[in-house]
Design a protein around this nucleic acid. Sequence first.
DNA 1: GATGAATGAGGGTTCATTCAT
DNA 2: AATGAATGAACCCTCATTCAT
Lengths: 198, 198, 198, 198
Amino acid sequence: MVKAHAPTSDKYDRILSAAVKIFAQKGFFHARISEIAKEAKVADGTIYLYFENKDDILISLFEDQMDQVLANMKLAVAREDDALDKIRCFALTHLRMVESHPDLAEVIQVELRQSSKFMKEYKNVKFLDYLDLVGQIIREGQAAGQIRFDLSPTVAKRAFFGALDEMSRYYVLSPSPKVSIDEAAHQISEVFIRGIAA
Amino acid sequence: MVKAHAPTSDKYDRILSAAVKIFAQKGFFHARISEIAKEAKVADGTIYLYFENKDDILISLFEDQMDQVLANMKLAVAREDDALDKIRCFALTHLRMVESHPDLAEVIQVELRQSSKFMKEYKNVKFLDYLDLVGQIIREGQAAGQIRFDLSPTVAKRAFFGALDEMSRYYVLSPSPKVSIDEAAHQISEVFIRGIAA
Amino acid sequence: MVKAHAPTSDKYDRILSAAVKIFAQKGFFHARISEIAKEAKVADGTIYLYFENKDDILISLFEDQMDQVLANMKLAVAREDDALDKIRCFALTHLRMVESHPDLAEVIQVELRQSSKFMKEYKNVKFLDYLDLVGQIIREGQAAGQIRFDLSPTVAKRAFFGALDEMSRYYVLSPSPKVSIDEAAHQISEVFIRGIAA
Amino acid sequence: MVKAHAPTSDKYDRILSAAVKIFAQKGFFHARISEIAKEAKVADGTIYLYFENKDDILISLFEDQMDQVLANMKLAVAREDDALDKIRCFALTHLRMVESHPDLAEVIQVELRQSSKFMKEYKNVKFLDYLDLVGQIIREGQAAGQIRFDLSPTVAKRAFFGALDEMSRYYVLSPSPKVSIDEAAHQISEVFIRGIAA
DNA sequence: GATGAATGAGGGTTCATTCAT
DNA sequence: AATGAATGAACCCTCATTCAT
């Protein structure tokens, strides 16, 4: 069922913003629809005019935000010509997004990789697109002779993303991180680049 | 509260094993106590003789299994003398454990990093110990002059673990992986070693 | 926590009435929320829109009804000028209320004096107010020289109330009482009045 | 089912004593069998060798204790020749028993008049016997011309017992009573005697 | 569209009772 | 007789979802 809603209303966005906040605070399962409604200043029932059910809020949130994250990252990476610079750029942009949107980062980090509901049944296309940005850069670098040919892009893109992601978890969950975002991005991209260089 | 139970009974282990299976299948929140009880072939109430509540099952499971994982990894790594070989060993051992205990790996992967309950309120000491095994190896390699001194062990250990962990997620959730466990372990450890080498 | 509910709805009263009936029938502990809900023709969950929990139903019931009982008794007693007539009036009014509201009388008789929950932790102010109506009458009669001065109002008010209360228990629990309400009220008040007269 | 138990064992009494204590503390419904067992220093299951079920503990307790109370009261009252002195003696003995066995008094006061289980289904013969001791005294006094003939023993015995009982509740539940037991007994019996005197 | 009172299915947990030892 | 681990029926309460207004 496609939910109709007037584009003039900002309720859809208000609900999603509220959901990000509450999900980050309590976790998806402990978050209450009534709490999201209260935070969004709408009635409980109103949420069901914009979303099918509770799951749909999380998925919509993810899809919506991943569109922006993806667009943002593509734009940032496109500014660099060199594959290795693109990798540096990816790391920095990724961690800076985490820093500037901690609630969203936490929800994506923590809630979205949880439970069969969202990682098995729900085909996480947006996430795979995001992951493949790294894969493209690697293949580009291989084509340019900068990156070893015996490196599997499938493995390498996950290794790189995983490194950044684990670092994100550190920032999301750690009250007082000891290393700056920029320094972490620098260290991770340098290790990776040396590791994959031809 | 320490729950009394005869050491001769295997119910504690039966319940934990059942829980691993059901949690992996349905996710923690969708898992039903009655289902775990049925799988463990005990009455619902019996579970509460061994565990405080549902949360306690997950935490006990984690603590119990992490003890074994930790011991296993320490043993494996101790067989190598060279820091770089230890890193190779860690990667291979980690991914092989994931391969041989897919249910457990999935639960740890997916459930335990979820929700404030388990990553914020619950001090995940065992996980930090595990993570620090990598940190120790790195400091050892730095002392031996094999690893760059300008590398932050804090960042590097997370980068390495994150790479392995993201690869684990791939194996846990992917129905038909395209790269072998051993090959993935090899690629990840080689990229990392080149990346951090002095 | 004050439970919100539209004043136009009669659900609050319907639930209380149902509760009186079920509590009288089964006793508080054997009464089931679902049974009260069914009797009140509301859903189980609806009860929790009007009451915090099962205990709260009993306490609300008591507070609500005692307000009415208290008001009713004050009104009745105020019609008499003479202290001794007030005592006669109190006895008659009390037992007639018991007769006309047997379910409520039984609940108050039996449930409310039960268990630390309601007689120790719960400060039963309304009941003490009711009891003190008798105390006031006695002090009034002492001031008028009709009642002995060496009589302790503290003891006397309890003696009088206890006499009526035990008689109430008889009516509440006895299937076929042998003495009429009015005759019992008469006998009790006359014994008491002679007993306390100057 | 009649429960057999060796008269050499004191477990039966230990369980009843424990039950009195726990029932007084928590109330019948909040009392846990396991708690009574612990207090009596027997295993949970042992209780079921001596009692049919939880209800049976309370009833046995009541029957057992009422036998003693009844015997005690009969003995005390038999020492007096005069009906009016017997009334004085009854009041004093009753309140002194309450004072010296507060736990038991509380259980009888509070638990035993609760719930249909014990006041409707369970024919409370012992209590009626106790109540009728007063009835007998009154009839005796009427025969001796000391007590009015137009007084209904049915009403009068309840009035007198109710007065004492309400006073007991005061002592049982009040942390610091303002009137002494002996004074209360004196006042109540004097009021009653004057009230019923020919 | 918007509301929020009402719904009622569902499940974690308790605890009286049983029974193998 | 005594034990206490095990049982499983029973129930209060929560909360996602609905629908009359």
